[in-house]
Design a binder for these strands. Structure first.
Lengths: 130, 130
DNA sequence: ATGGTATATAAGCATATAGTGATATACTTA
DNA sequence: TAAGTATATCACTATATGCTTATATACCAT
């Protein structure tokens, strides 16, 4: 029983993962968006997401070729309120609210700065979740 | 800030420390009592207590030559109420309620570097490792 | 298929962590 | 004062963790 909670806390005990959770509390995001927001590489982001998922804190759904992550609907007790206690950075909020979902990816290019009016339409989620 | 909460969670992310917190939720205890209850050595217990103290989860007071630890009165938000939910093992409760404070110590009974004499049954048969 | 994009996994490295035994420090008492 | 007890700290080791680069897999469009 201690081990179960210890495991949970161990997953929460990393500033990057807490930031990911706080970002997801603003809106769902795909991996490449998180990569843009975080100062670490894509594999590192993936590995954090896997741990968060195994801990039951986030789950995942697919849209086109993206994998979106979101806060798990039914969190373990208390954890939901802890996450709300995290205050999200203003610039993170602005970024998430102003970027059209899917418009920012192509992660290895610093290009793509122009053509800002070439937008991706609203999501039509492929299938299965929820 | 993420780092601050991450640090807090990291301290909670260890089953031994959670057990210590649950023990202290029954009653204050001195280090040597915790040593009796936990399957680790006294230095390990001391080190856990130091981390718990630095994280603001426990504090310490002195009685005679003992250092008693107790749950910090004013916990970081949410954590206090969460600890209440931690279920303490029955045998731990019994032990803490039935042992007179300070009556159980003298921890290094079998570890004395005392010269020779009777080492008694410590070294028994050697057939338990194969 | 072919190529491109998005994400996951693998392998390796550097650092952090929890444990140990040895030792130092602090307090108590004869 | 000396001796004993309680606790902390030191030095070390084994393992875990987070990061990176390289590579594999999955999906999408041509």
């Amino acid at each position: 029983m201690y081990t179960e909670w210890a495991e949970r806390f161990r997953v929460l005990g990393d500033a990057t993962r807490l930031r990911i959770l706080s970002l997801l509390s603003v809106r769902d995001a795909c991996v490449c968006e998180l990569v843009e927001l975080l100062p670490i590489t894509q594999p590192a982001v993936s590995q954090h997401l896997r741990k968060l998922k195994l801990a039951g804190l986030v789950d995942e759904y697919r849209v086109k070729s993206w994998r979106f992550y979101r806060l798990q609907a039914d969190m373990p007790p208390y954890i939901g309120s802890w996450i709300q206690e995290l205050k999200v950075g203003d610039s993170d909020i602005v970024w998430l609210k102003t970027h059209q979902v899917g418009a920012t990816c192509t992660i290895n290019k610093s290009a793509r700065v122009n053509s800002t009016d070439d937008e991706v339409g609203m999501l039509d989620e492929t299938d299965d979740h929820r």
